[in-house]
């Protein structure tokens, strides 16, 4: 039986993430449809979904798999798309002090953009390690389950929904809905604007490496904006 503080953390984490998790639904469905569009059988599509469990990496590698490019290029592309997780992992890692090694691997495997954005603040602020673990695991497992279920629905819906509905646009909206609450803080808005502009300028870089550069530029810009804002507010 999990401890009371684990359950209290789990409840709070779940409730904090619940409204955001709606954004996963269209994204998962879009990913399911895209995998079927790439020619996967339902078993192959769900196999990829279980093993990779990463919308961006799945959607990003599909065209390469279809084109039959060398395996190493697919792996390098997946790595490039996932490099942001090294940054997320480093940022949230202090929240797992006191957790055992197998639990850390499990938690690491479940790390997603949405859970990270939602949980980071409290994971670093709260002292009780059991509460933190519950606060992280509840939304993580919830989004894992949502992801599997709605990808499966997408796999089977793929043949039914007309292509000209542009369901993939719902993935763009889902990402934006994660961004909007963050961008209410001025330095975050600066970070997002700088990263977005850089990504557009560097869109021609091979292997989508422009994405990595854009993230780095955005972080730098946000940090600079925070520094500047602090200076202005100081007496």
């Amino acid at each position: 039986m999990p401890s009371a503080s684990f359950r209290a953390g789990a409840r709070e984490g779940f409730l904090a993430f619940l409204p955001l998790s709606v954004g996963l639904v269209p994204w998962a469905m879009v990913t399911g449809m895209a995998m079927v569009g790439a020619g996967f059988t339902p078993v192959q599509a769900m196999g990829m979904n279980f093993i990779v469990f990463a919308g961006t990496a799945q959607l990003g590698t599909l065209p390469l798999i279809v084109a039959g490019v060398p395996l190493w290029l697919i792996v390098v592309t997946a790595l490039a798309l996932n490099l942001r997780f090294v940054i997320f992992s480093a940022a949230i890692a202090p929240g797992f002090r006191g957790a055992a090694l197998p639990m850390r691997w499990f938690a690491g495997h479940l790390l997603t953009d949405g859970v990270f954005a939602c949980c980071l603040e409290k994971m670093l602020a709260v002292d009780d390690s059991r509460w933190r673990l519950g606060y992280y695991l509840a939304p993580s497992i919830w989004s894992w389950a949502l992801w599997q279920v709605f990808t499966l629905i997408g796999v089977f819906a793929a043949g039914v929904i007309p292509k000209h509905w542009s369901l993939e646009f719902m993935a763009t909206i889902a990402l934006l809905m994660l961004l909007v609450p963050l961008a209410r803080q001025r330095p975050m808005l600066v970070a997002a604007a700088a990263a977005g502009a850089t990504a557009v300028v560097l869109r021609g870089m091979p292997l989508r490496l422009g994405l990595i550069v854009a993230i780095a530029v955005g972080i730098g810009a946000g940090f600079a904006a925070e520094h500047w804002q602090d200076k202005e507010e100081a007496p």
Binding site: F88, D113, L175, L178, L179, M188, A195, A216, A221
Partner: peptide, 8 residues
């Protein structure tokens, strides 16, 4: 700032 930057 990583999440906002990555999403954007």
């Amino acid at each position: 700032y990583a999440p906002a930057a990555a999403l954007a």
